[in-house]
């Protein structure tokens, strides 16, 4: 069964009366790598909380595969949608890293051998194998964040959501994160992230959704999204370093990675050479 996400005419108003989402329609195919960007208060977090039923539509529908989020508990939805919260300290409570990682797949009722295998794979992916028997709270915040990620990835959900995965992480951890997203992509999983780290988004996501005032302002590949400087500015998103540099130099199409910046530069140079 395909784990397509179908959001249709979604409206959401908080009990306080704050309107957080206005008529959002979005389809995310299985296996996509989607980043959601936009300023605080633009509706990003409200939107991803709709995907596993933590919040439910005031109007409209959210479907994960053949399930409507209104018809299943969050705990049930957890079998399809994994959700890594921004702050790892909001979820860690077991005495060892291994037990912490085991908790999620245990809740999903997998057989014991499968659980052990999933735990092992998640620990390996996050480079936590040698820390498996350590108490998570004896680790630094950077490593606790990895434990939280492993704990959700071990649930082996077809869809994984990350809320600000790069916050508080250093260069090496961010590089590792990029590899993890690549691995998840190769496994056919849908990866959705909210992030303020625009350079990271540009380099690791094939589709970018820009939100502002509860609406989807832009939706497409980096190439087209980063071309819309004015729309980005309206929701306080500064384009990636290389996009800005490329625009100043007026080289070719919109660039956003080292590779496509250099490619554009080469092309530009060749053209100059021909003249």
């Amino acid at each position: 069964m395909s784990m397509r996400i179908a959001i249709e005419n979604l409206h959401f108003t908080y009990p306080s009366g704050v309107v957080a989402l206005r008529n959002v329609t979005l389809a995310i195919e299985a296996g996509e790598q989607l980043a959601i960007i936009g300023q605080n208060g633009s509706g990003k977090t409200t939107l991803i909380k709709q995907l596993n039923g933590l919040l439910r539509p005031s109007q409209g529908t959210v479907r994960i595969g053949d399930w409507l989020t209104t018809e299943h508990s969050v705990a049930k939805m957890a079998a399809r949608v994994g959700y890594v919260f921004q702050n790892p300290d909001d979820q860690l409570f077991k005495g060892t890293v291994r037990d912490e990682v085991r908790f999620g797949p245990g809740n999903l009722g997998f057989p014991a051998e499968k659980i052990e295998l999933l735990v092992q794979q998640a620990l390996t992916l996050l480079e936590l194998t040698d820390k498996a028997d350590v108490n998570p709270y004896d680790l630094t915040a950077t490593w606790r964040k990895r434990v939280a990620m492993a704990a959700v990835l071990a649930m082996d959900t077809p869809i994984v959501i990350f809320d600000e995965p790069t916050t508080g992480q250093d260069y090496q951890s961010v590089q590792r994160l990029a590899q993890i997203f690549q691995t998840l992509h190769e496994q056919g999983k849908t990866v959705i992230a909210i992030s303020h780290d625009i350079d990271f988004v540009a380099e690791n996501f094939s589709r970018i959704v820009v939100m502002g005032q509860g609406q989807v302002l832009l939706d497409g590949p980096a190439q087209t999204v980063f071309a819309q400087a004015e729309v980005l500015n309206s929701t306080d998103v500064e384009p990636p370093q290389l996009t800005r540099l490329g625009q100043r130099l007026a080289i070719g199409p919109v660039v956003y990675t080292v590779e496509n910046f250099l490619a554009a530069l080469r092309k530009e140079n060749d053209m100059q050479g021909e003249r």
Binding site: A78, Q91, F103, G104, L108
Partner: peptide
Amino acid sequence: NKANTIIDAQRSRGLETQ
């Protein structure tokens, strides 16, 4: 506020709270 976030995080890990 923090307690509410924690409840959300654990339900998202398949914890039945009801």
